[in-house]
Design a binder for these strands. Sequence first.
DNA 1: GTTTACATACAGTTGCGCATGTATATCAAT
DNA 2: ATTGATATACATGCGCAACTGTATGTAAAC
Lengths: 218, 218
Amino acid sequence: MARRTKEQAEQTRDALLDAAGQLFFSRGVGGTSLDDIAHAAGVTRGAVYWHFRNKADLFEALYERARLPQNDLLDGLLAAEAAADFLPSLERLCNDALGVLVADPARQRLFTILYLRQELVAELAAVIAARRAAHRDLRERVIARLNSATLAPPWTPRSAGFALVALWQGLVNEWLAEPGQFDLAGVGRQCFAGLFASLAGSGEAAAPPPWALPEKSA
Amino acid sequence: MARRTKEQAEQTRDALLDAAGQLFFSRGVGGTSLDDIAHAAGVTRGAVYWHFRNKADLFEALYERARLPQNDLLDGLLAAEAAADFLPSLERLCNDALGVLVADPARQRLFTILYLRQELVAELAAVIAARRAAHRDLRERVIARLNSATLAPPWTPRSAGFALVALWQGLVNEWLAEPGQFDLAGVGRQCFAGLFASLAGSGEAAAPPPWALPEKSA
DNA sequence: GTTTACATACAGTTGCGCATGTATATCAAT
DNA sequence: ATTGATATACATGCGCAACTGTATGTAAAC
């Protein structure tokens, strides 16, 4: 082989990232050699070292390619002035985020790597640390925003924020750990419905939100 | 060095397991060589291969050494006949489990490895799969047990069980990811108080359980 | 005397980083 | 439009380091 056109080069770069995503997911980052990636993409290690400096650089590129558009939505919601319907909006956002995840296998693979396979290889350290900081920041902002919302006892902004983030994270982890073993969006909708009903104080008969779909059976 | 007495041999075995636990935690399972472990325990790789067949065998021994006594408690609670105070008992059990974890650094390290560093190395595959199955089984049993409890709407046994397990898991993961950055037992107590109050339908003023400690500030 | 509890020594493999080869795309100059 | 020069997009090959598994040595416990 010899030199290829620019579009072809971009295609091989994408192919390398795709192959890396699949292999990192199925064999782990530390368990995947650059030769594995190159072979899966139909090239050799030379191509890898042309497009990326090393495995860490490759992984960072993979991370950058999957930035969550959902983050912008949350930013907007948190930045908005105190509105009476903050809690319903937040509930809808939680459910939407689950929907986005369910519909995007590539994101599921990356989340699996980032959430429950935080290998302590040097390649991942920077990305893991950045994501952890972002996560912590998000949680704190949710708590801060909940300070200006009316919560039913015994909830406090702090406990409610922790419960929300932990519930979302726990559900996602549970689902990623046993892929497709239950209906994440449906279960999540029920759980968030219960939690938000409790937060709002409507303990008894909360009217189902208009976007609620008919409940799937187990 | 030459042959040592049986008690000394048992000590070196324990020292190897201790060293492995520390190193697996700080550098990852794939990132620590058997030579690292042996050196940290003050012996050579020969000792490792005497006590264990390989790294996988060593890790399984490490896992066996830290079986949760809490599991037995939960088994008893789930097996007991339907009692009116099932929900309060379950709430106490959740808090107790958090307390056990907070007090045991070795268990924290192992949980960190098992929960958020599921490296896909062959050494871990068996243990990870076993733990995942056990976790799934526990969730299903909690749901089954909730079928004979009275839950306030909109909760169902299924959504309540998922929410409980996900909340516990999410809180623990959050805390393990940022070690010591918040008071896990205190935050957990608040979150579970809110969730269980919602499950029981006492939306307004739930009397604090007698074992509740004074709330720590952030 | 035999087994035990290691230490030491010896291949064998694997993967990384880099250096080098090479054919072609790109482009300026004619 | 053709041509030459150069940069590009890889492929190939090499040395090196690390790690594993095993084989063997050995002194003390039993």
